[in-house]
């Protein structure tokens, strides 16, 4: 009971971090749209409604359109994360999961000028409790971002190993101690719930999910 409650808390932590990050991003895109709408008003007021530069109006319209697209991508990502809880267990494509999780950390990576690349074959499927799995991968990546030096290059690699689905995070600047101490981390409650094996190695951390 206690372990389940803690795993639930870890899922809530992941979801609240995703929501905080995306709502912040959406406030930024809304601010850009707001300023550009205001700029159109300014142009009308300055010209008295006549002879407004078509080129200038087009530039503003393009900016607004781009920000709407940016917001839509963020909302799609949040929507996918939220729907991971629709069923207790489910099957999903690993490449899609890793791409989504990395997309959800773009802002945190940008704050530290980090480059995060994903390597994964497109035909690996996993069958597990999806929300805890998303939460585990997301919170692990956020921890590694927090512990990385600026301008570090992180890799998230998904692969099949002896029938198990392995996700390996490589972060060259993260101390080996962090990787080996991961077995003591509070995320271990998710590791245990999902029956994942976590292996900390020098500069890398591997999460291995056994076959369903």
């Amino acid at each position: 009971m206690h372990a389940n409650a803690t795993a639930e808390a870890a899922c809530i932590e992941a979801f609240s971090k995703v929501c905080a990050s995306i709502s912040h991003e959406i406030k930024n895109t809304m601010a850009i749209i707001n300023e550009n709408a205001g700029l159109l008003d300014d142009l009308v007021m300055m010209s008295g409604g006549e002879n407004i530069s078509a080129e200038r109006v087009k530039a503003v319209s393009d900016t607004i359109s781009m920000q709407v697209k940016r917001t839509n991508v963020m909302m799609n990502n949040l929507n996918r994360f939220a729907h991971s809880h629709d069923y207790e267990t489910g099957q999903e494509n690993l490449h899609d999961i890793l791409t989504l999780i990395v997309s959800l950390t773009v802002r945190q990576a940008a704050q530290k000028s980090l480059e995060i690349s994903t390597e994964c074959s497109e035909n690996i499927e996993i069958n597990t409790r999806l929300l805890p799995y998303y939460a585990l991968v997301y919170l692990t990546l956020r921890l590694l971002i927090d512990h990385s030096d600026d301008r570090d290059k992180l890799t998230v690699k998904g692969e099949l190993q002896d029938g198990c689905v392995s996700v390996c995070f490589t972060a060259p600047c993260v101390a080996a101690q962090f990787m080996t101490d991961f077995s003591e981390n509070q995320l271990q409650v998710l590791v245990a719930m999902l029956n994942v094996e976590s292996r900390g190695e020098t500069n890398s951390l591997r999460l291995v999910l056994p076959p369903a």
Partner: peptide, 13 residues
């Protein structure tokens, strides 16, 4: 501000 589009438009206004 690190949002360049915001920065430029607010600055212009």
């Amino acid at each position: 501000d690190d949002e360049v589009e915001f920065l430029e438009t607010l600055g212009t206004r």
